[in-house]
């Protein structure tokens, strides 16, 4: 059976899909912003001297990396309210899920970048009297952060694509919008193609923006 491809269906689905794009972006940005803070804190805890922060960080990271995101999402949305008696709105649940999930991966990125900086750098910092915190802030972090940008870009792209899993809790993001249009017009080929192109435009934009940012940082650091 030949496919009767109708380009007009693609154009017609764009306005509705853009609503989904909007929500996908909000959830991605919100989730990643919180995930970055969470991941940085966890990554720093992993390099801490104390045993307790390291243990807490390890448990968090292992638990998240060892379970599927879709299970985490459903646990958060359907499971947790049964324990707390408090329902979480789907979009909020989506942002929390992306935050907690990306935070675990970002923690590993942060830890790896910090540990890749030569110990001589912190020794030099400590030798001029900087505290451990100041040494991290002014000496180690700026150098480590530069090394984080490529893997962070990767994680941003993964998290953006992960938002499509939120379809299981009924968040009206891009994938969900696509499903709903198809439920009405049955044009699976055209609509999923349009959805795919929209994801691609977003992921390519992230990669692009980060490359430019990295180049600007490097230029400022004189290399």
């Amino acid at each position: 059976m030949a496919l009767d491809f109708q380009a007009s269906v693609m154009w017609e689905s764009v306005p509705l899909l853009l609503g989904g794009v909007h929500l996908t972006i909000i959830i991605t940005l919100g989730g990643l912003a919180i995930g970055f803070v969470l991941g940085t804190a966890t990554g720093l805890a992993k390099t801490a001297r104390g045993r307790l922060p390291r243990a807490v960080a390890d448990i968090y990271v292992e638990a998240i990396r060892g379970t599927p995101l879709i299970v985490q999402v459903m646990f958060l949305y359907f499971g947790v309210p049964l324990a707390t008696g408090m329902r979480i709105p789907p979009v909020t649940a989506g942002i929390i899920a992306i935050a907690v999930n990306s935070g675990a991966y970002i923690a590993e990125i942060v830890r790896g970048a910090i540990e890749s900086i030569d110990v001589g750098q912190s020794e030099a910092g400590r030798s001029i009297g900087l505290t451990r915190m100041q040494t991290m802030l002014y000496v180690v972090w700026p150098q480590a952060f530069r090394r984080m940008i490529p893997p962070l870009g990767n994680q941003f792209i993964i998290s953006l694509k992960d938002t499509s899993l939120l379809v299981v809790i009924g968040v009206g993001e891009l994938t969900r919008q696509g499903q709903e249009i198809i439920a009405v017009n049955f044009r699976a080929f055209e609509v999923w193609l349009t959805v795919a192109v929209m994801y691609l435009v977003m992921t390519l934009s992230i990669a692009r923006v980060l490359r430019v940012y990295e180049r600007r940082l490097n230029a400022r650091f004189g290399r």
Partner: peptide
């Protein structure tokens, strides 16, 4: 230090 350890950034 032998390796200078200047802050490269």
């Amino acid at each position: 230090f032998q390796q200078f350890n200047l802050f490269p950034h």
